[in-house]
Nucleic acid binder design. Structure first.
Lengths: 181, 181, 181, 181
DNA sequence: CCTTAAACGAGACGGTACGTCAGGTCTTCTT
DNA sequence: AAGAAGACCTGACGTACCGTCTCGTTTAAGG
């Protein structure tokens, strides 16, 4: 007999606070107060802070972007389209901090970890499109599709962890290098 | 006049506890007790938990491996040599957890972030070797060296965050793909 | 909803430690540990160490003596009865130290101060009995009743602060002098 | 080869801080900093905070008033003269707080205790004058001189501990009652 | 429709850790 | 040699959250 209103309020409060304060300042008490909810109601339905964030992630509340990707037949162009929508998130105010918070949450909690790449569209769209690239011969048959997806996302993450002043074009250079053959 | 004994004891305790308990369970009080030191002595010299970890990282206390890399003339072979020594860290017991703890620390704290790649030898050895690959024509002149380094490290990190049962060969496939042309 | 068990345990621990260690060695942490209680539970209900002691005082946990005083018609005799029960507290082991601790607490904290004389029966019994002495003519109508009470208690306190080896009869001499006319 | 300059500076700082902050906020570190002195220099010459205060007391740095008392032949008048100079201290700004701080220090530390009454002139002047009162027949031969002194001082202290809004005349009523016969 | 058990908000509870303050001891360098 | 400076270990401060545990109070089914 679970209250959907409470669930809504909790996930809402969680994503709001996650965005405004980051993962490390996110507390269950803060969420409960923000959501106007008792702490027990949170503990009743989620086993940990991580589970809560994973739920938000799955609901698309943390990265509210649609990473759907067209298949125009131009592999490099399509991948750049996807990449630009990911980079757009990072260029928003606090975008880098948001990514690092997601990474921190993913490092802390397995639930978040398994859903992080997913909610950025890596498996669903990027890898899928790469497999298309193999089918139509734009990529060699033995191209390690999943690894290439991880490499692109990973390069973005490592750059963010390094707090380097981002040159927006750099990851695109990587992508071009990956498919230039 | 700063006590070197205290500094030693603190960094030692920090790395010991970091390895045994991970970043999220690492507390200043725990370190102080383990090191037989007052908390104030820690706060006097380090501004945060992150600064402490960054110092351990620089001292090579967290990843006690030498990532020096030969230049045998065989680019792919040399990169695989480097990669294998990185993967060896992950295959040790708790290796994956160690990497995730490092990532969590890097996400939390800028000091750690800027030194993470460094202490895995990414800039110092890997990128340097790649530049050598450009010089001797094994890589095209416009290969984005730094990005390739981040991509390899990033793929490893993303895989670890995803808690995927590691197939040891997978990242090597990526490396081969990157240089196979 | 406040836990009476916790309140009981805290006041109990406080008075126990106050007796055994004195005011200056009395710590909130010590009380919390002795009471098997979290520190916050103390801070939630008492604003300071003094408030805690004042509460113990009001509950009769620090000076567990009944200072009720008969009215036999013999003013001097009755006052001596009261006085002897006060002196009995001082003659107990650590009695002088207990009084000094109470005085220290009263000097530190207003709550304790306003209740100190009260819990020794100065206002309730001694002053009341003196007013009876005025009514039946054993004291002049303009005798400063409250001041006389304070003088007797004050003489005891000053003597204790002076660490003078107490001659038990001395304060009684004062009382006799006060009423001999 | 003790430095008198340091001694001066320390006692000066102590009494200055004692007056401005009270006994409970008086710290050795604060005194050292205020005096421009190393902590060790304090610990070298005084065994405790109390000893320091007792020294200040003896030097007349805490109650900078001369309680010398004339002998005009009028016992009550002379005692009132002494009393008024004591009450003047209390009526100064923070006078009550100063007295309570002295009492707290006296309760904490025996050295301070034995000198408190003394530095208010109780033994030296008041008791002495009372003995004169016996000699010239204004007091009965068996009047408990020391006790009467303590009673007067004690009444003032108890009143101050009770945080009662002082009616300046009240203690004088006590004195009049004590000698009206 | 009415009861009745669950889910709920509120928040107290025993804990752990935080970052700070001061205690008293101990160099180390200066005068 | 004594002192100024201040690092050191210790222990307590008052606060923030943790996850668990009552409390009444909704609230939504099922009798």
């Amino acid at each position: 007999m679970r209250s959907t209103a409470a669930r809504e309020a909790i996930l809402d409060a969680t994503s709001r606070l996650f965005h405004s304060q980051g993962y490390d300042r996110l507390t269950i008490e803060g969420i409960a107060k923000e959501a106007g909810v008792g702490k027990q109601t949170i503990y009743r339905w989620w086993s940990s802070r991580g589970a809560l964030i994973a739920d938000c992630l799955l609901d698309g509340r943390l990265i509210p972007v649609d990473f759907d990707m067209p298949d125009t037949g131009d592999l490099l162009g399509d991948v750049e389209t996807w990449l630009r929508s990911v980079l757009a998130v990072l260029e928003a105010p606090q975008g880098q901090a948001l990514l690092r918070s997601l990474v921190a949450a993913a490092a802390d909690d397995a639930d978040v970890g398994v859903h992080l790449g997913e909610s950025l569209g890596v498996e669903k769209y990027l890898s899928e499109r790469l497999r298309g690239g193999i089918r139509d011969g734009q990529l060699p048959a033995d191209a390690p599709v999943a690894q290439i997806g991880r490499a692109i996302l990973g390069a973005i993450i490592v750059e963010s962890l390094g707090r380097e002043a981002r040159e927006p074009g750099e990851v695109i250079d990587l992508v071009r290098y990956l498919f230039a053959r």
